[in-house]
Amino acid sequence: MTHLASICLLLLKIHTMKSCAGVSLKTQELYALVFVTRYLDLFSNFVSMYNTIMKIIFLSSTFGIIWYMRGHKLVRQSYDKEQDTFRHYFLVIPCMVLALVIHSKFTLLEVLWTFSIYLEAVAILPQLVLLQRTRNIDNLTGNYIFCLGAYRALYLLNWIYRYFMEKNYHAQWITWMAGMIQTAIYADFFYYYFKSWKKNERLKLPA
């Protein structure tokens, strides 16, 4: 739900302000790659209606955001292209290599799924770099990143809960480790987010 909220906040910002200032297209494209490689089982592995609907929402909304940033006349003009310089392959290639080395089963679907877990852990980095370069971070962008980070942090609690409460719950070290790293990457952002919130000041990250 926090993940869904983050997407709603981002779409709200882009749609109402007709601006994507401070939003990293690189991160959005990495997320698109994350969802495509993770949800390849969309039609073959039915978990629940909730699960299927959320997968479709995550996939379509991410491509919708990319379309807005690349294709919408007004939104496209507000994109900080010169500042959003992080290179995709710098994250994609190491994650691919790691997925080929550390996985639970050497099949195409499993390796791609593992790749998506690793890539998700670091997909926020271009956004954080852009944020550091952005002087005026608007509330919606700040809250968007907060929700995106909080969702994985909440997963950590959920994993602990499931580990102790569910009888047939399997340990999933790859997901746990990647989730911990993903949350740790946000630690700095969370710190400044709460600090600005407490002081009732506009969010800004030190250079």
């Binding site: 629940s48 089963k105 499993e110 999933q172």
Partner: peptide
């Protein structure tokens, strides 16, 4: 070998 992880999460 590691256990095949459950794919019930998003």
């Amino acid at each position: 070998t590691m256990q095949d992880p459950p794919k019930d999460e998003l």
